[in-house]
Design a protein around this nucleic acid. Structure first.
Length: 281
DNA sequence: AAATACACCAACCGCGTAGGT
DNA sequence: TACCTACGCGGTTGGTGTATT
């Protein structure tokens, strides 16, 4: 695989951006739009690599970025999304307008993981910790850095298939359906009235889906479309061409499996883990 | 006041993958 | 089919500010 040499190229600026560079980048994007990151620096008169430009724009310069403190509501949403998605920061950020994946990732690592630990919850698994949270005793140098390095061998389990990119189906209208499930009765319902064969539906629907539970009201399910608390919003779909598109039958199968697991709360953890493995493509 | 530890976050790095040729 | 480019993502680093000793 040929990989772009990127920032290692000699002569390119690195490190913090200057106001002048910010202005050049902003001006260029306002005039020509985003994209073509590789050639953008040259055309914008910047001595930066395209990656660096993209990052600066996405995380800092974009006009729709919301700056300032993260609200308790956002806090709560991040925690709940993380329990469902794991470290899928871009997906989580997609549910928080104006927030960037980098910001959420940083916020999680510096605030929320600590907060959860103090509440007796493992921030990686969202399960109750068996041992009480470690009291701060003395100062440890680079505690956080050591933790992240150590933690890298211990992957977060994600009960969701890894997002895959699909071709945009621009020729067909997007339909939406929501799929909710009462965890007590186990019954599922869909808001979509249009009757389609699975093949038709798989072909026509740009499906963005997830499997999860709403910790507050006990609602669980696989969610499609928009306007459900745990669903990827349509705005996400529109702003990300890499939406998830998968086979209808597979979805149903996964949904059934997940439902079965939810019904049986006594399932050993390793069985859940193997289920998660099966979801990870 | 100085030294040290810690917290925060912008930026970098490397990998996976879509899409073009 | 193989190769290459560009992009997006998550993990990690390092500079800087703040708190503590």
């Amino acid at each position: 695989m040929g990989r772009a040499p990127c920032c290692s190229k000699v002569g390119l600026h690195r490190g913090p951006w200057t106001p002048r560079e910010d202005a050049l980048l902003t001006k260029y994007i306002q005039a020509h739009g985003e994209g073509q990151w590789r050639s953008l620096p040259k055309r914008a008169g910047l001595l930066r690599c395209g990656k660096s430009c993209r990052l600066r724009w996405m995380n800092y310069l974009r006009p729709d970025i919301k700056r300032g403190n993260i609200s308790p509501e956002e806090d709560d949403l991040i925690i709940r999304m993380h329990s469902l998605l794991g470290n899928r920061w871009s997906l989580i950020a997609g549910r928080l307008p104006g927030r960037t994946d980098n910001e959420i990732k940083n916020y999680w690592n510096t605030h929320l993981s600590k907060k959860l630990r103090n509440q007796g919850t493992d921030p990686k698994t969202h399960h109750k910790l068996t041992v009480p949270p470690e009291k701060k005793k003395g100062k440890k140098k680079n505690k956080q850095k050591n933790e992240t390095k150590k933690g890298s061998s211990e992957k977060t389990l994600v009960y969701l298939p890894k997002a895959v990119r699909v071709k945009a189906l621009s020729c067909v209208p997007r339909t939406e359906s929501t799929f909710t499930l009462d965890s007590n009765s186990g019954s599922a319902s869909t808001s979509q009235e249009k009757v389609q064969s699975p093949e038709e539906e798989a072909r026509e629907v740009n499906m963005v889906w997830g499997v999860g539970s709403d910790g507050d009201n006990g609602e669980v399910g696989i969610f499609f479309g928009e306007d459900h608390d745990l669903v990827y919003s349509s705005s996400y779909v529109e702003s990300h061409s890499d939406n998830v598109h998968t086979d209808h039958g597979t979805l149903e199968k996964l949904y059934e499996e997940y439902l079965q697991l939810l019904k049986d709360e006594e399932k050993p953890a390793d069985e859940l883990d193997s289920f998660a493995q099966s979801l990870l493509v």
